[in-house]
Amino acid sequence: MKPDGRGVHSIEIGARLLFALVVEGEPMMLKDLARQAGIAPSQAHAYLVSFRKLGLIEQEAVAGRYRLGPFALDLAISRMGRFDIARMAHEQALKLASATAMTVIVLTWGSFGPTVIQVHESRDQFNINTRLGSVYSVTGTASGRVFAAFMAKGLIRDFIRNERKQENPSRRIGSPQFLSKETLSEIRCNGFATIASQPAPSLGALAAPVFDHVGQMRLAISLVGPGKWLGTSIGSPCVEALLMATHALSYQLGYDVQHSKPVVCQTSGRKVLKPV
Score class of each variant (00 low, 15 high):
Val239Ser: 00
Ile39His: 05
Leu253Asn: 04
Gly7Asn: 08
Pro201Trp: 05
Thr141Lys: 03
Lys271His: 11
Ser202Phe: 13
Thr108Gln: 12
Val8Phe: 13
Pro3Leu: 10
Leu33Ser: 00
Ser268Tyr: 06
Ser143Phe: 03
Ser233Thr: 11
Glu121Leu: 05
Ser50Lys: 13
Leu75Glu: 05
Ser78Lys: 10
Gly133Leu: 07
Phe159Leu: 11
Glu186Arg: 12
Thr115Ser: 10
Gln92Ala: 15
Ser202Val: 14
Ala193Ile: 01
Leu96Ser: 03
Glu121Pro: 06
Glu60Trp: 03
His120Thr: 13
His9Ile: 11
Phe71Met: 14
Pro237Asp: 09
Ser185Phe: 01
Ile160Pro: 00
His120Cys: 09
Ala61Ser: 14
Thr141Pro: 02
Arg161Lys: 13
Ala93Arg: 03
Ala61Gly: 01
Ala200Cys: 05
Ser10Asp: 14
Ala34Ile: 05
Gly69Glu: 01
Gln177Thr: 13
Ile221Lys: 04
Ala97Leu: 04
Glu12Trp: 06
Leu132Pro: 01
Leu253Ser: 03
Arg218Cys: 08
Ser185Glu: 15
Gln166Gly: 00
Ile234Cys: 06
Ile221Asp: 02
Leu96Arg: 02
Lys31Thr: 15
Lys153Gly: 06
Met80Asp: 12
His90Lys: 12
Leu56His: 00
Ala89Pro: 02
Gly140Pro: 01
Ile117Thr: 14
Leu73Lys: 10
Cys189Phe: 01
His45Glu: 12
Lys271Trp: 11
Phe19Met: 12
Ala34Glu: 09
Gly69Ile: 02
Gln36Cys: 09
Leu179Thr: 00
Gly113Leu: 01
Ile77Val: 13
Leu184Glu: 02
Leu219Asn: 08
Ile160Lys: 05
Val224Ile: 15
Leu73Met: 08
Gly235Asp: 07
Ile156Asn: 01
Cys265Gln: 05
Val23Glu: 12
Leu73Thr: 12
Arg145Ala: 08
